[in-house]
C-alpha cells in the first residue's frame, strides 16, 4: 500500500470546495467527437426521406470536415474528394480553450499517412494566433514586391510542432506546409494544414498520438507560450487505400498505392531523380516525372501490369489492402 499516496489523497479532502463543486457540476468541453458515422448517415438519410413530403430532397452531410479546406489542400485532383468522402472516416476534434484542431480527412496507405486539418481560434488569444499566421491575398493587393516579402517574412506560422512516441523515444514531427494565404479572419479565424506521418517510424501503431509542443522546443522563439497546451491529436492509423508492393526480382521493393508512389518505406521520396511509368494490363501507360505528391493521382492497382521507375522494372509482388469497415 502506498502510504504516502494515501496520505496525499487524504490531504486533498481539504481542496477548495469551489473546485470540488465545480468538478461535480461541470463537464469538460474538450471534445473528441465522432461526427456522422456512415451507417448513421445512411439511417438518418432514410429516416429523412421517409418523412419528407413529395418532391423534397434530403441533404446529408459528407464525412469530410471542413470540406472547403480539404478541397483547397488537394486542389490538384478533384477526383480525390469523392474517394475521400467514401473512405476518409470521421472528422475528429481536439481543443483547448484557445484553439480547436479538426482532423478533417485522412489519406492512409501502407507507407504513409497524411491528415488534412483545420485550425480555428476559439478565444481572443487563439483567434489572434491563427490570424497572425495568415496573410490573405486581398491584404497583399497594392503592396510593392518588397512590402509583400516583408509581410510574408514576418508572418508566424500557426502550424503546431508535434511529437509522437516512436520506437526510440519521442520523435519530432515535421508537418508538411500550409498555405499561409488561405483562411478566414474576423468572427471565424481558421486555416488549414497537413500532417505527414511515415508508418515506418511507428510500426504496429493503431492510433498515433501527436502532442502539440511549443515552438521553443523546436528551437524557435516562443511567441505564444502554452497556446497548444493540452492538445493531443489522435490519428487513426488504419489504412483506407490499397498499396501494391512491387519488386525488381533482385530484392529491391517500391510501393504504389492508390494515391501515391514511394521509393522505399523509410526514404519515401528518395533522391531528386524521378521518372515513373505505370504500365497497365489494358495496354495503357502513364508517365509521371519530377515528383509526385499524395493524392495527385488515383492509380487503378488491379490493372497494373508492371512499372518502370528510374530505368528499373518492378513487378507486382503483394497487395496490402485497406482496412475496410462494413457499412450498410
Amino acid at each position: 500500500m502506498n502510504e504516502q499516496g494515501i496520505a496525499v489523497l487524504s490531504l486533498f479532502s481539504e481542496l477548495d470546495e469551489r473546485y470540488i463543486a465545480e468538478a461535480q457540476e461541470e463537464k469538460l468541453t474538450l471534445r473528441h467527437r465522432r461526427i456522422f458515422k456512415a451507417p448513421f448517415i445512411a439511417a438518418a438519410a432514410a429516416a429523412i426521406l421517409a418523412l419528407s413530403s413529395v418532391g423534397a430532397v434530403a441533404y446529408v452531410k459528407g464525412w469530410i470536415g471542413h470540406k472547403e479546406n480539404v478541397e483547397h489542400q488537394y486542389f490538384y485532383n478533384k477526383a480525390l474528394i469523392p474517394e475521400l468522402e467514401k473512405r476518409a472516416g470521421e472528422p475528429l476534434e481536439f481543443e483547448n480553450e484557445h484553439l480547436r484542431i479538426t482532423v478533417d480527412a485522412i489519406i492512409s496507405d501502407a507507407v504513409y499517412v497524411e491528415a488534412s486539418a483545420t485550425i480555428e481560434g476559439l478565444d481572443k488569444q487563439g483567434k489572434k494566433f491563427v490570424e497572425d499566421g495568415i496573410t490573405l491575398k486581398n491584404e497583399l493587393d497594392g503592396l510593392t514586391t518588397d512590402e509583400v516579402f516583408g509581410v510574408l517574412g514576418r508572418r508566424n506560422s500557426f502550424v503546431p510542432f508535434m511529437t509522437a512516441p516512436g520506437r526510440d523515444g519521442e520523435i519530432k514531427m515535421a508537418n508538411s506546409g500550409s498555405d499561409g494565404m488561405f483562411g478566414k479572419k474576423g468572427e471565424s479565424s481558421e486555416s488549414a494544414f497537413t500532417i505527414g506521418i511515415k508508418r515506418d517510424l511507428f510500426p504496429d501503431c493503431e492510433t498515433l498520438e501527436l502532442t502539440c509542443i511549443e515552438p521553443i522546443h523546436a528551437g524557435i522563439d516562443d511567441w505564444t507560450p502554452g497556446i497548444f497546451e493540452g492538445i493531443v491529436l489522435e490519428i487513426p492509423m488504419k489504412r483506407n487505400f490499397d498499396t501494391l508492393v512491387l519488386d525488381d526480382k533482385s530484392g529491391r521493393e517500391v510501393y504504389l498505392s492508390e494515391v501515391c508512389f514511394y521509393q522505399s518505406k523509410s526514404d519515401i521520396w528518395g533522391g531528386k531523380a524521378f521518372d515513373l511509368t505505370v504500365y497497365s494490363k489494358d495496354g495503357s501507360e502513364q508517365n509521371i516525372r519530377d515528383h509526385i505528391v499524395v493524392g495527385e493521382y488515383l492509380f487503378d492497382l488491379e490493372n497494373v501490369d508492371h512499372i518502370v521507375f528510374n530505368g528499373r522494372t518492378f513487378y507486382p509482388k503483394e497487395l496490402i489492402s485497406a482496412d475496410r469497415e462494413e457499412t450498410e
Binding site: M1, N2, Q4, G5, I6, A7, V8, L9, F12
Partner: peptide, 8 residues
C-alpha cells in the same frame, strides 16, 4: 495513490 505519491 501511486500517482499522488509523486507529488510529495
Amino acid at each position: 495513490s501511486d500517482e499522488a505519491a509523486e507529488l510529495i
